[in-house]
Design a protein around this nucleic acid. Structure first.
Length: 470
RNA sequence: GGUGGGGUGGCCGAGCGGUUGAAGGCGCCGGUCUUGAAAACCGGUAAGGGGUUCGCCUCUUCAUGGGUUCGAAUCCCAUCCCCACCGCCA
């Protein structure tokens, strides 16, 4: 959520921000509603103040009279009752007026609130303007020794690469058919060494972030209440991307949603809390199953492990003090952890500065990391893919946007409560990471070399075409 | 699923129709004492919204939403959540 005061002071900044992000939200209607709401509220409060004043004045009188009433004779009784009726009638016009104002406010509030939740965080000034993901800016690339990104895979390695689809088939690493049989399109099963490799790479990533970089290991719920989804900024905009469990329709409690990322649980855990500032920055990592409906992606990346409904992800989240320098530095730190990881995995990657149009509603700034995937991209004359970058990581910098929505604060030196800043980044998501891992480490004979960093986590050094079920 | 008990400030906890925004304690801040610290003692210490001549003023908030009442933390209804025991069960 954006800062309402800032919006009132400088609406143009938010109008421009939404426009840069290609997000449609009617800010001028919101401001009208906001003005009306404030006016009504002020009137109501004036009436309330008056009512409270009267109430304080007549309260003790009523109490006294009621006491007298008990041991009064008939004449006195009727006199006292008249006085009581007079006193009790005093606030009645105020009451009905307050009721009327309340009703008016209640009529405005839902629209007011819905619009406020839709106002996106404006992109930072140093984020490049753009119309689509095509305008993202490459910051730098890295590739392991002996792999020159200006040449094709074949030129580097001396043989034509197979795609990950071909590799998982020949090596028996994935069973797509049965995954689809049970759950439908975009489902899969990792089998044998496929599952071993995924477990290895996840565990390697989790150990790296928690042991080497000191992030606190956490488990999180992935079935969450709507408040968590709204609080983290995934709702209302991304509502159709989440699986919805309609528990309320079964007469029990409330609805639940499946999280698309561990971030929801890691951030939601501190909702409505005032954190101890000496605990900041809080650095946490979780390994969780992620669920995405991929609504609107029909027809895109339908084959293979790239775009699927269920996957595993190691996620890093940082909650820090509300200081731009601090959160910018932490953002860089989080990216460098991923660079360390990908370098150990010996996977070529590039850093992409996302342009304004690609940021989504919650981010002030986002940097994606893409790995080189030889099996992706346009096809050559032989109908073989030329290779392409594929997104594997996304590092978000959000200022206080999430913490505001989650009502997550800390106390600063002066004892004032301040909304914290939050950041998050992928550490590693699988099976998507298996695509570059398999494609880049394939050998001429079709086997897969296991990089050194994964060897402690694997029972084999090389993946060979053994029987799929082993 | 059944029965019972609960949800109060940063935390613990009292209050069960009227100066209760809320006793008491812990924590935190300031002071006295001390060479310094601790202890002890004294004082202060909620959040959010609106307005402001930036001194303050004002409204809301005791799980949430309704209701009763001149007046609700306190009574009634609904919902959510937590705990205990029993049943079932991975």
């Amino acid at each position: 959520m954006i800062d309402l005061k800032l919006l009132r002071e400088n609406p143009q900044h938010f109008i421009d921000g939404a426009k840069a992000k290609n997000i449609k939200v009617d800010i001028s209607t919101f401001l009208d509603l906001d003005e009306q709401r404030r006016l009504l509220q002020r009137q109501k409060e004036d009436h309330r103040a008056e009512q409270n004043r009267i109430s304080k004045e007549i309260g003790p009188q009523i109490g006294k009279l009621k006491g007298q009433l008990k041991n009064a004779n008939e004449d006195e009784k009727s006199q006292i009752e008249t006085q009581l009726a007079e006193l009790e009638a005093k606030p009645s016009t105020l009451k009905s007026e307050i009721q009327r104002l309340d009703d008016s406010i209640a009529a405005i509030e839902p629209d007011w609130n819905a619009l406020l939740l839709q106002v996106p965080q404006p992109p930072d000034a140093d984020v490049p303007k753009g119309e689509s993901a095509d305008d993202n800016v490459q910051l730098r690339t890295w590739s392991p020794e002996g792999f020159d990104l200006s040449h094709t895979f074949a030129e580097n390695r001396g043989f034509e690469p197979k795609t990950h689809l071909e590799l998982v088939e020949s090596l028996g690493l994935v069973d797509f058919e049965r995954g689809v049989k049970m759950s439908g399109t975009r489902h899969y099963m990792l089998t044998g060494n496929g599952m071993r490799l995924q477990q290895a790479v996840l565990r390697f990533a989790f150990d790296l972030i928690t042991n080497k970089y000191g992030y606190k290991p956490m488990s999180v719920p992935v079935i969450l209440r709507e408040e968590c989804m709204v609080g983290t900024g995934f709702f209302p905009t991304g509502r159709d991307q989440a699986y919805h469990i309609e528990e309320s329709k079964r007469g029990s409690g409330h609805d639940l949603f499946l999280a698309g990322t561990g971030e929801v649980g890691l951030m939601g855990m501190y909702a409505d809390e005032i954190l101890d500032s000496s605990d900041l920055p809080i650095k946490m990592a979780t390994l969780s199953t992620c669920f995405r409906r991929e609504a609107g992606a029909a027809g895109r990346d339908t084959a293979g492990l790239y775009r699927i409904h269920q996957f595993e992800k190691v996620e890093q989240v940082v909650i820090c003090k509300a200081d731009e320098e601090t959160s910018r530095q932490l953002h860089k730190d989080m990216l460098s952890i991923v660079e360390d990881l990908l370098q150990q995995l010996e996977l070529p990657y590039r850093l992409l500065q996302c342009c304004t149009a690609d940021l989504g509603s919650k981010n002030a700034d986002m940097i994606d990391i893409e790995c080189w995937m030889p099996g992706r991209g346009d096809l050559d004359e032989q109908d073989r893919p030329l290779g392409d970058w594929g997104e594997t990581h996304s590092a978000s910098r959000l200022y206080d946007f999430q913490c505001r929505r989650l009502n997550m604060r800390y106390r600063d030196e002066d004892g004032k409560t301040v909304f914290a800043h939050s950041l998050n980044n992928t550490v590693l998501a699988s099976p998507r990471i298996l695509i570059p891992l398999l494609e880049m480490h394939q050998q001429k004979d079709g086997n897969i070399r296991i990089p050194d960093c994964l060897k402690p986590y694997m029972s084999v050094d090389i993946l060979e075409p053994t029987h799929a079920s082993v």
